[in-house]
Design a binder for these strands. Sequence first.
DNA 1: TATAATTATCATAACCTAATGATCAATACG
DNA 2: CGTATTGATCATTAGGTTATGATAATTATA
Lengths: 155, 155
Amino acid sequence: MLSQTTEYALRALAHLAREGTDPSARTAEETILQAEEIASALDVPRNYLSKILHALSREGILASTRGPRGGFRLAAPARDIPLSRIVKVFEPQLLADEQRCIMGRTVCSDDDPCSAHEHWKGVSRSVRAFFARTTLEDLATRGDGPTGGGGENDE
Amino acid sequence: MLSQTTEYALRALAHLAREGTDPSARTAEETILQAEEIASALDVPRNYLSKILHALSREGILASTRGPRGGFRLAAPARDIPLSRIVKVFEPQLLADEQRCIMGRTVCSDDDPCSAHEHWKGVSRSVRAFFARTTLEDLATRGDGPTGGGGENDE
DNA sequence: TATAATTATCATAACCTAATGATCAATACG
DNA sequence: CGTATTGATCATTAGGTTATGATAATTATA
């Protein structure tokens, strides 16, 4: 559902957020990692990742520093960065409030909807809501615990 | 969220289902349309659509007949064809029960989930549920009216 | 059987995403 | 100032999706 590019971006950012546990940094945003480190940690093509990190810097999600001891760090605390902000950089259309019908905008509209129209809008809304309320911190921290590690149900 | 190919497939099938109103055919499945007719009605590239219709025929969703008076017709009543069957032809991974984490399968798992894990599974489940319970008939008929001729529930 | 209508298939191009490799630009530090 | 380290950028390739045009295969009908 997400492009490779977006997936790499999310993984890289989650990795940066997790490295906040590095004792030499007091907060996640102070943690600096080089593109090379991230690329090899995630096993992702280095130059390709570079371009992605650069795009995230342009958007103000990351801050980059060149030269020795340079690298990338989060520009804000992980809990203040909703996933929607990241996804919007690489696939804006997915979050656009615009998408009307599953068959395409021209086929049916709010004014003259097909029977599935409202249902699809509901699905689309729940996707957007997920990205809006989930933050980088959620990707970086481990889930549940108590009931976890054990029986989980798939459908 | 769906590829161009899938969108064309849905539109073409919905068009076929709607033509069930043709007085010369008693049921939608008896309506036969040529690729050319469909392509120009939907303003979609003709040969490209041909390949899509062919794929749908291979899957038993359409039945095709060659030669004069040939064309395509639904192989079953529109209400018996869930959208999942169509989507599965062109993007099976979207409906796969497999997709674990938004960051990719290798990053986090049911056994060692991130905090967003269950939320994402919920979204993914609602997408699959939509495609499973929505049928071609829903795409072909007009929505609402009085109260829509159908109970409206989102999850 | 000949012909026209129609689907099926093939070959190719255009375009986008993903990936690779090489080089340029900035900068900390000796 | 020089040099090593790092991000930024450019050129190119590979592969997938979308699209176009031409040809083959099938079949109803005159």
